[in-house]
């Protein structure tokens, strides 16, 4: 265990914990990338992971829906649970897990298919829709929740890749939402977007809060301050400090957190 500081003077205990990580360690071959991280992610608050490049925040995010399984040299130790269920248990269906814990990446990556098909694909393969009419409803609902419906409703059969970068990213969020996930992981979802498109995604995160547990990795500290209620600071593979976002940004307890968020790092 690392000596993690809980900056949680005003953290309320009455929240529904969705995911729990305990003493999680990640190795890439010989190199240890995550050094015993324990954290709870809850339904009611957006959790932001911040930290310098190479601190392990993205690696840790990827353990939450077993994306590191695709990296041959990666090995994960410790326990991660979703609603109390061990997601690394042999009985866990990884495809099902990734439907429950969706992910949005740094670079928008719509399928080279129509807008409609981008949304419809997941529900169809997961058997969530019964017939065309059902699928139409899911597509509309998902695009509405992603804040994209009004912009694309008249061209649902145009290619998803023809949209602007910000629209593509909202399409990817809509695609993640379409399979009714419980958790949405976002890995620097705005780093390729302009400020207006970024603001739209941030507003969307606010609207989705409470319906899904949301974890966002961001390099942009102002963004973490704007969108999250809980902030976790990672450094050199350790979770240095985790607490209420307003406490972290006005009165961080750990020297390393303070140096990082005030721009004194390195």
């Amino acid at each position: 265990m690392t000596a993690m500081i809980q900056n949680q003077e005003s953290m309320t205990p009455a929240v529904e914990t969705k995911m729990t990580a305990r003493d999680v360690k990640v190795f890439y071959g010989e190199k240890q990338a995550i050094k015993g991280v324990s954290i709870d992610v809850d339904m009611d608050n957006v959790t932001a992971f911040i930290g310098p490049s190479g601190c392990g925040k993205s690696t840790f995010l990827r353990t939450l829906n077993r994306m590191n399984d695709t990296v041959a040299s990666a090995r994960v130790e410790g326990t991660i649970t979703l609603d109390g269920e061990d997601i690394y248990a042999p009985s866990m269906d990884v495809v099902q897990l990734r439907a429950r814990v969706g992910m949005v990446f740094q670079k928008p990556n719509p399928f080279p298919k129509s807008i409609y098909e981008n949304i419809a694909y997941g529900p169809r393969i997961h058997g969530l829709a019964h017939g065309k009419a059902d699928l139409d409803v899911i597509v509309e609902k998902s695009l509405r929740r992603a804040g994209l419906w009004d912009e694309v409703k008249d061209r649902l059969h145009d290619s998803g890749t023809a949209l602007s970068g910000g629209q593509q990213q909202r399409l990817c969020i809509g695609r993640a939402i379409a399979v009714e996930p419980e958790v949405i992981l976002m890995d620097e979802p705005c780093s390729a977007l302009d400020p207006i498109a970024t603001a739209k995604i941030e507003e969307l995160i606010h609207e989705l809060r409470g319906r899904y547990a949301i974890v966002i990795v961001t390099h942009n500290m102002q963004q973490a301050a704007r969108v999250s209620q809980r902030t976790a600071f990672f450094h050199l593979g350790e979770l240095v400090e985790y607490g209420v976002t307003s406490d972290i940004f006005t009165n961080p307890k750990a020297e390393r957190t303070k140096d990082y968020i005030t721009g004194r790092y390195g």
Binding site: M221, Q222, F249, T250, N251, P252, T257, K258, I261, T262, G263
Partner: peptide, 10 residues
């Protein structure tokens, strides 16, 4: 211009 944080902000 600097968006000061933590002790700088205080």
């Amino acid at each position: 211009l600097r968006a000061p944080m933590a002790n700088d902000l205080r």
